[in-house]
């Protein structure tokens, strides 16, 4: 991480640790789950140039697997989280293998189609509880601490988010990340330099799916249930919106985008009802038309222009 990112990361971490004294912890945890989901998605879209339009399937799959592991198999919490994450990564490997041989819009279509197939499987399968979802998932304990207590769980969620965010940053700034950027910038050139780009894309896809899965697993723990909504293509669209609104290919963009969208939905849901969808649509249009680089991207560009003028 660059020095500025490191400072922002540490400041953010301190704020997160203090947050529950001011804000309802469940809301912050929800924001963090979606922020992790969006950061994982950004690893693929922003840094590899791959638009997956079925990413919610990883969120949803991990949610069910973790829910099932905790409720039915009564496994320890950490093992349950791990199981969800691994399941999502494995599904990522399958979907990724089939999708990465296609380019651009065809890649997006394949991911969407496969995600829909998995969605219908979840709708029919008995263990998911269908439309009702998988209810009553126990949170369990960690190191003797009862996670049924929201504050205890909160610090676990912050730790998961902080570690995952760090891993994503590390991936972006690793030898592997360099090749991902090269593929995003000019794929034929990367091939002509001897890189088997399919393998790099696949690993990026699996990492992104696994982290999206960790977000879904954590979310199940927070809300004590796994739902079909998480695997729905609406959610796949939402993560695109969060990432674009915040700024794709920026470090903090997905975090900002997820915070805005989740908070808005939370505030507006009771007041305007289904109008929320329209508002989200309007935000999307404004974002695409007026600030392509997203909030963080535009702010950075403005900042650069300002210091450019001073000199």
């Amino acid at each position: 991480m660059s020095r500025r990112v490191t400072i922002a990361y540490l400041v953010g971490l301190v704020l997160l640790l203090l947050a529950p004294t001011l804000i309802y912890p469940i809301l912050v945890m929800k924001v963090l789950c979606f922020a992790l989901f969006a950061c994982a998605f950004n690893l693929l879209l922003g840094y590899t140039g791959l638009l997956s339009f079925g990413h919610a399937v990883f969120l949803g799959t991990a949610g069910y697997v973790t829910g099932h592991a905790l409720k039915v198999w009564e496994l320890p919490t950490l093992v349950g989280l791990l199981a969800g994450t691994v399941a999502a990564a494995a599904l990522g490997w399958v979907i990724g293998s089939l999708a990465i041989r296609r380019q651009g819009i065809y890649f997006a279509m394949v991911t969407l189609a496969l995600a829909q197939m998995v969605f219908f499987f979840f709708l029919q399968a008995p263990f998911t509880g269908g439309e009702d979802g998988l209810q009553g998932v126990p949170r369990g304990t960690l190191f003797g601490l009862d996670l049924a207590n929201d504050i205890n769980l909160y610090y676990l969620v912050v730790a998961i988010f902080a570690a995952s965010f760090w891993l994503i940053q590390r991936t972006i700034h690793s030898p592997f990340g360099q090749i991902l950027k090269a593929i995003r910038e000019n794929e034929p050139r990367a091939i002509s330099l001897g890189y088997d780009v399919a393998k790099y894309k696949l690993l990026a896809f699996v990492l992104s799916a696994g982290l999206a899965g960790l977000a879904g697993a954590t979310k199940t723990l927070v809300f004590k249930f796994a739902t079909l909504t998480d695997a729905h293509w609406h959610t796949s669209g939402e993560v695109v919106l969060m990432t674009l609104l915040g700024g794709m290919g920026t470090v903090f963009g997905p975090l900002v985008g997820a915070t805005i969208i989740v908070t808005l939905q939370n505030e507006l849901a009771d007041k305007v009802g289904s109008l929320v969808t329209v508002i989200m649509g309007a935000i999307f249009v404004i974002c695409v038309l007026a600030f392509r680089r997203g909030i963080v991207g535009e702010s950075l560009a403005l900042y650069k222009r300002m210091i450019g003028q001073k000199i």
Binding site: L167, R170, T171, H173, S174, P175, F176, G177, Q178, I179, A182, A190, L193, G194, Y195, K199, Y200, L203, L207
Partner: peptide, 19 residues
């Protein structure tokens, strides 16, 4: 230029390593 040189190091899949 480094992208081209990097392949020989054999660490191009190491996502946990610093660049």
């Amino acid at each position: 230029v480094r992208i081209a040189l990097q392949r020989k190091l054999g660490t191009s899949f190491h996502f946990w390593k610093s660049d």
